[in-house]
Simulated scan of single mutants.
Amino acid sequence: MSLSAFEVFLQSLQTHALLKGISKLDYVPLDLSIHNKELKGVNISSSTDLETFINNQIKKNDAKVAFGGYLEQRGIYERSNYFNQSNPETERNIHLGVDLWIEANTPIYAPLNGIIHSFKNNTNYGDYGPTLILKHTIGGFEFFTLYGHLSITSIKNLEVGVEVKHGQQIAALGTAEVNGDYPPHLHFQIIKDIQNFEGDYPGVSNQFDLEFYKANCPDPNLLLNIY
């Protein structure tokens, strides 16, 4: 399928890596979909057990970071009433960002110039926890990038509208105690139309709304360029 003009534009941008000092060879893909039979023996409701599984995948592949998840249908959201619905069409379990699984307190860097659009601690069980959204206006396009599962200190003393420079440290990753009860990781998402959200935006879709979100939240790898 051909890329939209917006996707072609994103792909053309020169970005700074979200994680510094890590090469492409240090990343290993991670499958957390409902189709991964290896997860059948893992208690995915436990952040500790899930973290052990993820860390084992990283070590087994001599990697530093596990990544993946865009449009992945996952079972890990079933534990939370925030996502779970009785109707399969409205149950939110299709992931709209890319996750980078790496230890807590890892610094996160801005991929592009922008400004602080908003920030918030989203404290629902299974939610983002501390979250930062940047606004970018480049080459006639306006769009947003979201960074979820941060440390609480990452969103302290921030001000909306403050300029952020390409390559500037903008955050660090949080622990399971503050990040929605997940193993430490970054949820990174591109958003074309923020729809009046502040400090939050859906990172998981249901089947019914999926076509809209696929268009509004294109593949983050257009900026990340890690796979």
Rank of each mutant, 00 (worst) to 15 (best):
R74S: 04
Q207K: 15
I138Y: 10
G161F: 03
D62V: 08
N105V: 04
L186N: 07
H117Y: 15
A171S: 07
T123Y: 11
H95P: 02
E91S: 12
Q14P: 02
N105M: 11
G203W: 13
N221L: 00
L18F: 06
Q169P: 12
G21S: 11
A63H: 03
L32F: 08
L186S: 08
S12F: 08
I191P: 10
R79M: 03
G75C: 07
E91I: 11
S86V: 10
A110I: 04
Y82V: 12
H117W: 06
F53Q: 10
Q57P: 04
E159M: 12
T123H: 11
F141S: 11
A66T: 02
A176L: 02
N113I: 00
L100V: 00
G129S: 06
E211Y: 09
Y201S: 08
D26L: 01
S86Q: 12
H95N: 05
N84H: 13
L3D: 11
T131D: 04
S46L: 03
I115M: 09
P183M: 09
I226H: 03
R74H: 05
P202F: 08
G75E: 13
L132H: 08
Y182A: 02
L96N: 05
T123C: 08
I102Q: 09
S45M: 09
K192F: 12
D181T: 13
I170Q: 05
Q168H: 06
N225I: 00
V65G: 02
Y82A: 12
D127A: 15
G126V: 00
D200Y: 15
L18W: 10
W101C: 07
R79D: 09
P184L: 05
F83C: 02
Q189H: 06
G139T: 01
S151E: 13
L100A: 07
G148K: 03
L210N: 05
E198Q: 14
Y201A: 04
N55A: 08
G174Q: 03
Q189F: 09
G199M: 05
H187K: 10
I155Y: 08
L19A: 03
L32I: 04
L146N: 06
K60R: 13
S4T: 15
N121H: 14
F141A: 09
F9D: 06
Q168W: 07
K37Q: 14
Q85W: 07
N84D: 12
G114Q: 02
S118Y: 12
G114T: 07
E177V: 03
W101Y: 14
N43S: 12
E142Q: 14
Q14C: 01
L30G: 04
S4V: 02
N105A: 11
P88F: 10
S33N: 06
V98S: 04
